[in-house]
């Protein structure tokens, strides 16, 4: 019981930390995209090589951040699932109420008929 509560706290705090990082990444993702749009617009106006290159760099950075965000988001889902698992286990020990499949759909009815 104690171990499940400890694990629950551990994974909840890890999920909380990740959420903060994800918020920052989400902001950076938006900022990079806005910067890309701005520079792309400027490059069509001026035709400057530096602005074109910078807009490409910001677009590439935007894709890197998108990928990074997706990976961390998956990790967040994983930690949330782990905390839910521990919450369920603790409740199971406490109240004997199972959150897991009891296998009712797996009953072998031919055996049931013979025994009843």
């Amino acid at each position: 019981m104690r171990i499940y509560k400890e694990f629950y706290q551990k994974f909840i705090s890890k999920a909380g930390q990740l959420k903060k990082t994800l918020n920052w990444l989400s902001f950076s993702r938006l900022a990079l995209f806005v910067l890309f749009l701005f520079l792309a617009y400027r490059s069509t106006q001026s035709g400057s090589g530096i602005t074109i290159s910078l807009s490409v760099v910001f677009l590439a950075l935007f894709f890197v951040v998108v990928k990074w965000y997706d990976r961390l988001e998956q990790k967040l889902v994983f930690y949330k699932t782990l905390s839910k698992v521990n919450e369920d286990e603790a409740r199971f020990v406490e109240t004997n109420q199972s959150q897991y499949d009891e296998g009712r759909n797996m009953k072998m009815y031919n055996i049931l008929i013979l025994t009843t």
Binding site: S98, Y100, D101, E102, G103, M106
Partner: peptide
């Protein structure tokens, strides 16, 4: 018994 064992 299945619900006690099952963590699949």
């Amino acid at each position: 018994m299945f619900s006690y064992l099952n963590r699949c």
